[in-house]
Design a binder for these strands. Sequence first.
DNA 1: TCAAAACTGATTTTT
DNA 2: TCAGTTTTGA
Length: 700
Amino acid sequence: MSNLLSGLNPEQLAAVTLPAVPALILAGAGSGKTRVLTTRIAWLMSTGQVSAHGILAVTFTNKASKEMLLRVGAQIPVNARSLWIGTFHGLCNRLLRMHWRDAGLVEAFQIMDSAEQLALIKRLLKALNIDDEKYPPRDLANYINGNKEEGRRPAEVEAWDEYTGMLKQLYEEYERQCRREGVVDFAELLLRCFELLRDNAALREHYQARFRYILVDEFQDTNRLQYKWLKLLGGGGAAVFAVGDDDQSIYAFRGANVGNMRDFEREFKVDTLIRLEQNYRSQGNILDAANVLIAHNRGRLGKNLWTQEAAGEPIRVFEAASDFEEAQFIVEEVRQLNREGRALSDIALLYRSNAQSRVLEHALVQAAVDYRIYGGLRFYERQEIKHALAYLRLIANPDDDNALLRVINFPTRGIGNRTVETLAESARATGTSIWQAACGGGAGRSAASVGRFVLMIEGMRQEAAGLTLPEVVEIALTQSGLLELYRADKEGEERLENLGQLVSAAAVFIKEYEDDITQFLAHASLEAGDHEAAPGTDALQLMTVHAAKGLEFGAVFITGLEEGLFPHDNSASTAEGLEEERRLAYVAITRARQRLYITLAQSRMLHGQTRFSLASRFLNEIPENLLKWLNRGYAPSSAAKPLSSSRPDHGLRVGQNVEHAKFGKGVVVNYDGDGKNVNVQVNFGAQGVKWLILSALLPR
DNA sequence: TCAAAACTGATTTTT
DNA sequence: TCAGTTTTGA
């Protein structure tokens, strides 16, 4: 055990060895958060305070829960089955599978991903003859998910006019349809599990008595429903150990509520708040910059990172004339770093929005620098995989309309749109699934084709009964004609390969978990596979700042540090939005170990137009003594061209820097008029974009 | 039934 | 600008 605890700093040690009371651990970036979490689990078990059976550890991503399990396992022998470590959704799925009857679900309930949820909504609107321009499917999905994440069923939803009344009604219809099909969406997993525990005293007390220790990772990212779920489960006096960092809360837009941290302190009567402020990642200047920047936010729980490391290098700043030039600079610098011996995989290019990657990629391709982008298609999201899974879903639960519609005519088997619509209508009329309608005949002219499809699925189901999961997958691939289809397709080679991998995945699954189709499908829905760089190859890492959270690199480039882009225009108008942008910048800075670059461009191509902007206020918030400007006083180059070739005599130029007595520094975006009456549009960054008369401006 | 043409909207995203 | 979606037309 001394072994287990050795090397921990005093705060880490205090957190790891806390008694069985609710505690909030404020864990700064790079402060050894995961180590504290895993060591606490190992310590609790090795000291005999609790067995694996009594511990529940919750994370947000599969990646995090896998890592946690791995690292606990490295410290102490564990039985992965009795130790419940998983994502909120994964754990709720586990509980609902065990108690499906009490939860009011069908045994083989299927999990819809976001795309499937949207497809179901579109279908619903069509069936109900609702104008999808007045009620956009996306908005409706947000409305439904939003309500579920607040714990509200249709009955609890407020409606005050025709429009909101319709939304409420559609929410009801949506639920009815989900029930008919035996499917649940992601939010439903959480809400249904919450309600199960809330309404079933015996079950609630059972699990409250079982999980005496609950550990939560990334607590600042929890939404209201997840918080309520934790409160319910920990309500029996469990020691809830919440680890989080309010300064790294960057997911408010998807329902994360930082306020949960304060609520937790109050409602769980936390009197042990531990701050992990020693940073083991970044050098001094980088940490200083991060600390000063984040200090501009209000209402923080408060934290100041420090390090034993030296100050290190200053932060390098490069202001380019254009996004193109910014990319050129970065590529040159990356090559230089690489020549100096830094692996490409230890260098990251971070950006606020995905659109920025285009120019960077272009420059990288030209310079033949290997790179990887985070955020492509994941394994289980591939078309051929989705098709294969749809057949498996029909085997497990034929009432799943999404699955049926996806493959009833794929590969094509003479069941056209018309026929499908007839089936859907008759299903609608009788309140059943499309499968039921297909079984009942009445498909008009194409009755024969539909009948063959039904027989094929029935055949698969019967055969599946006696086979192992990988065998069932193979049957589905063969009998559906998917394999044949892709074999005939000269570009189907990669798809065939992926389908082969699906069979392997099924084989791995039954070894690690269970030989059960539904469980495998749940696994596929909850864990769509990762889309990060394939290990092995040394490649430069490109990603959004959001995607970089939790990662670290020797050298980091934060690009596009401009007003309007970072902070983004869409967020800068509210105090909360702006503070979240600042936290995002904080996350970006704290990714770097030794070297940090901040780059910006005076002009940038956006939505097909050249935009001129000023340096980000975040850059101005970093003290000058921490920065090293690589090209201060740089004159705008040819990228800034006059609007018209016939240059007016006032000498104004789009992209020109100007100054205003009240609004300060700005950049000319546009102008209008000639001679004496010239109006100029100026982008003043944080002060906004304004139209002014020329005489109000001074050139700079 | 498919491909071309027209249209639209563009911040961040895991489960 | 450009990618994704929907409409149109042969």
